[in-house]
């Protein structure tokens, strides 16, 4: 099976977020990491390849720094990488990101495309689904398990309240992968050493520009919520405190 894994570089989870000067996004100099569900998507692709043979290709869009996630993926065992490199890919809406990916892989023939369920920064959960639409492929979301069968694949979707859905799908297809579907592997040192020599195809913004439409996403203002928790002490004799308390619960908080 030939599998493409879409990956994104996102600000590190435990890094303190610093906003940029215009207050529209996070500053460039924070620490970055692989989007968590994407790491599981990659792991699943590597496991499928180990079972059924084939090739794992990873793709990302973003500035030069985003290459780090591709190198990491190559070190873990992906065969080659595609980097859509331009600062303009930061903050691009999901539709255009999917269009850019579709344009970049137009000459390739994949059996499966995996994305993480959603990104840890924007959290839209759209890129994979839109990409399926653009390609005219079936898709399934929140995938917990993938079994290859004679007609295609059988996947397990996570529903709410502990329920699951099993779906039989033909190939090719797009799947968005849930975190925790498998146990992530480490990049071994030999893998890291070999990653240097694996192919990395660069795609410039100009190469996919014709497929794009105006960016529909704009962040007007980003801010850290003000802390509003406040402790108030009621003073006076017990009877008076009780009276004040009842008043507050009834009129301010309206829970009585």
């Amino acid at each position: 099976m030939k599998i493409l894994v879409c990956m994104k570089q996102v600000p590190q989870k435990d890094a303190p977020l610093k906003l940029n000067e215009s207050g529209t996004w996070i500053r460039e100099d924070v620490s970055y990491e692989v989007n968590e569900p994407d790491a599981y998507a990659l792991e699943e692709a590597l496991r499928q390849k180990e079972k059924h043979g084939g090739e794992v290709v990873v793709i990302t869009s973003g500035p030069a720094r985003a290459q780090q996630v591709l190198r990491e993926a190559l070190a873990k065992g992906a065969d080659r990488a595609i980097h859509l490199e331009d600062d303009a890919f930061v903050g691009l809406d999901a539709l255009n990101t999917a269009r850019a990916f579709a344009a970049a892989i137009k000459d390739e023939q994949f059996d499966l495309i995996f994305t993480g369920l959603q990104s840890d920064d924007y959290g839209f959960a759209q890129t994979g689904v839109i990409l399926a639409e653009l390609l005219g492929w079936p898709h399934a979301t929140i995938i917990m398990q993938i079994e290859k069968n004679d007609t295609g694949i059988r996947v397990k979707r996570e529903l709410e309240a502990g329920f699951f859905q099993f779906v039989n799908m033909p190939l090719p297809a797009v799947l968005t992968i849930q975190s925790g579907i498998n146990k992530l592997r480490y990049a071994t040192l030999i893998g890291i050493k070999q990653a240097k020599n694996k192919p990395m195809r660069k795609v410039a913004l100009a190469d996919v520009q014709s497929a794009l439409t105006p960016n529909l996403q704009k962040i007007e203002r980003l801010y850290v919520p003000q802390k509003t928790k406040k402790t108030e002490t009621l003073d006076g004799p017990p009877a008076e405190i009780a009276k004040k308390l009842v008043d507050k619960l009834r009129n301010e908080l309206r829970i009585l």
Binding site: Q68, Y186, A187, A195
Partner: peptide, 14 residues
């Protein structure tokens, strides 16, 4: 180098 950083990451994770 990028390679050093990846190796540090593996050591850290381990």
């Amino acid at each position: 180098s990028e390679q050093h950083r990846l190796i540090a990451q593996t050591a850290d994770d381990f």
